[in-house]
């Protein structure tokens, strides 16, 4: 019998610190699988965000830099420009990419930097304890929107992927989810393609992943996955945006 499903080489054999039902573990594995399958592990440099995934380097066997909150794409830009034959990707949350780092995101995209961006949208700030994110849905309760997000005072959830898809410098933008095995397979396809785009020097590729945060959504893991399908993906529509 051959073993055809194993732990990726780029993925250390250690337990993660993530909560039960969190999407990060699935996504970390997908990234490691893609890196292995493309044979790029020895030339890949990851940029870890400020957020729950800041210690991603404890799980990925590859060179890695932390970046200050929001600055991942500035750091990635320089690393890639200095070593254009390496594969550089950022792994960023919604607060990092779409709030404090909005300027870095838009300008790296607009310059058409040949980078891969994995944008994890769970509609909440996880690491700091469940505050409102730029992508928090209307009426969604968080510690800083305790009566629910109010459009009059907090505005609409930010569709930054749609905004980025309008930029001429951007090569590819796709929104996927990790809410079910089917969606996980699709997410892997999209992320692998985003890495391949960089290998082929196509330019800026972003994959937005709708991901579960049961802890700060106040849901069980199963309810959280269902909430993506019934509610979150109703506002943030899945599919290829560019």
């Amino acid at each position: 019998m051959s073993k055809n499903y194993k732990r990726p080489d780029s993925f250390y054999d250690v337990p993660t610190h993530y909560c039960a039902g969190c999407g990060h573990g699935i996504l970390h594995r997908i990234v490691a699988e893609c890196v292995d399958e493309l044979g790029i592990g020895e030339k890949t440099i990851a940029i870890a965000p400020v957020g729950c995934a800041v210690v991603a380097y404890d799980y990925w066997r590859m060179d890695c830099a932390e970046a200050a909150h929001g600055r991942a794409l500035a750091v990635a830009t320089a690393i890639k420009r200095c070593q254009s034959d390496r594969i550089v990707f950022t792994y960023q949350g919604d607060g990092d990419l779409a709030a404090i780092g909005t300027a870095e995101t838009i300008h790296a995209a607009n310059r058409g930097e040949n980078l891969t961006v994995i944008f994890v949208n769970n509609a909440v700030y996880g690491m700091t304890g469940g505050q409102m994110a730029p992508t928090t849905l209307l009426e969604q309760k968080t510690t800083t929107s305790p009566r629910g997000r109010n459009v009059k005072t907090e505005g609409f959830p930010l569709k930054i992927s749609e905004m980025l898809s309008l930029l001429e410098g951007v090569y590819s933008v796709e929104r996927v989810s990790v809410s079910s095995p089917k969606e996980i397979f699709n997410t892997k396809r999209a992320i692998k393609q985003a890495f391949l785009n960089q290998v082929e020097e196509k330019g800026f590729s972003l994959v937005e992943v709708l991901s579960m945060c049961p802890t700060y959504w106040g849901k069980t893991p199963l309810e959280a996955a269902q909430w993506i399908e019934t509610t979150l993906s109703g506002y943030f529509k899945l599919g290829k945006l560019k």
Binding site: A67, A68, R71, A76, A78
Partner: peptide, 9 residues
Amino acid sequence: NMVYGASGA
């Protein structure tokens, strides 16, 4: 932060 990245490289 670009300097941080370039220097890191």
